[in-house]
């Protein structure tokens, strides 16, 4: 197990190293001179330009620049945003809770809807329900979520006015963030139930939109993994022992069928990021997805550079976590030392 894990970790660290090289090259590959990109399009005196070049180390050899980038990055300094003049790391972690809150809601939605549907579809194989579930999950898989979000807005916000169009909460509640998770902050600030419901209402549409792709994946995965397990001999034995259907499916089959599903859920972080980029743009959600898209349109290279380094390191850490859990949970892996 340790050998397998250490190999995985080395491979993932190499990938992370690659991402830092890509991030480092971005500003140097982009058309135009890096100093102009960093200072914005304003005209600057030749002296200031030279001073900036020296300060930021652009006059040093590339390899020195790269190690400087890594050295500063490890100390939590990933540069300063051109637009807001604030450190990229601060900006990132200020926006992360909004994305995480939305991501957690989206995953909860995907799991609570996807797993029961997947299980029922597998149990009632080849029934109308099974075909319906398979088709719906394929449709969810093919859904352009930016369109899906707008369609939901047209239906629920424009036509029947029951859900808000965008934002995290009604403007009448002016809540200073403490944790950044609004569902918690409303209580900490003592705003009470009406504010909580308002925040929850703002989460419903983006949550559904962001959860659509994970929902489709989880449903498909649960169904196929359940189908595999239901064919096993021990399930037949359990039936033969006279156990109730509920018990056989709910306890004997489900436990084993869940192993691959848990992996998929763990790896859903990547699709949460993709979802965040599109969903936050539709719903004007102040998270990291919209921040990244804006930074690309505004050519704010330090933000793009820092943003992808942090996101890649998070994805890689989650991958390591999933691999470790998988190695611990799965007895077959535990034996191989």
């Amino acid at each position: 197990m340790f050998r397998y894990l250490s190999q995985r970790i080395v491979v993932l660290l190499i990938a992370f190293f690659g991402i830092t090289i890509i991030a480092f090259s971005l500003i140097r590959l982009a058309p135009g001179d890096p100093i102009t990109l960093l200072l914005g399009e304003r005209s600057v005196s030749e002296e200031l330009r030279k001073e900036m070049t020296a300060n930021l180390g652009f006059d040093k050899p590339l390899i020195t620049q790269y190690f400087l980038f890594i050295y500063q990055g490890l100390q939590g300094d990933l540069g300063t945003s051109v637009i807001t003049k604030r450190p990229v790391v601060d900006e990132f972690f200020q926006r992360l809770p909004a994305t995480l809150e939305l991501g957690i809601i989206a995953l909860l939605f995907a799991i609570t809807v996807g797993m029961p549907f997947g299980i029922c579809a597998a149990v009632k194989r080849n029934s109308f329900f099974d075909y319906f579930t398979s088709f719906t999950s394929l449709a969810g898989y093919s859904m352009p979520i930016f369109w899906w979000g707008l369609v939901l807005i047209i239906i629920f916000s424009v036509h029947i006015h029951i859900l808000p169009v965008s934002g995290r909460m009604n403007l009448m509640y002016d809540i200073e963030p403490i944790t950044g998770f609004m569902l918690i902050d409303v209580w900490l600030r003592g705003e009470g139930m009406p504010a909580f419901i308002d925040v929850l209402k703002h989460l419903i549409l983006p949550g559904i939109v962001m959860g659509t792709l994970p929902l489709a994946v989880i449903t498909r995965m649960t169904r196929s993994s359940m189908l595999e397990i239901l064919k096993e001999d021990y399930i037949r034995t359990a039936h033969a022992k006279g156990l109730t259907n509920m018990r056989v499916i709910g306890i004997h089959a489900l436990r084993n069928a869940l192993i691959p599903v848990i992996t998929v859920i763990g790896l859903a972080f990547g699709s949460i990021i993709t979802g965040a980029i599109l969903t936050e743009t539709i719903f004007s959600w102040p998270g990291i997805g919209r921040w990244l898209v804006l930074s690309v349109t505004q050519r704010d290279y330090p933000v793009i550079q820092g943003g992808i380094v942090i996101i890649a390191s998070m994805i890689i850490m989650i991958n390591i976590l999933v691999d470790t859990t998988y190695a611990i949970v799965n007895p077959k892996m535990r034996k191989q030392t």
Binding site: P31, T274, V293
Partner: peptide, 23 residues
Amino acid sequence: RINDIIMALPSVLFAIVIISVLG
């Protein structure tokens, strides 16, 4: 390893990163 690097970022984000350089 090239494959791992591309897969360390979700594909839409990776495409955005490339667009940020190429325009």
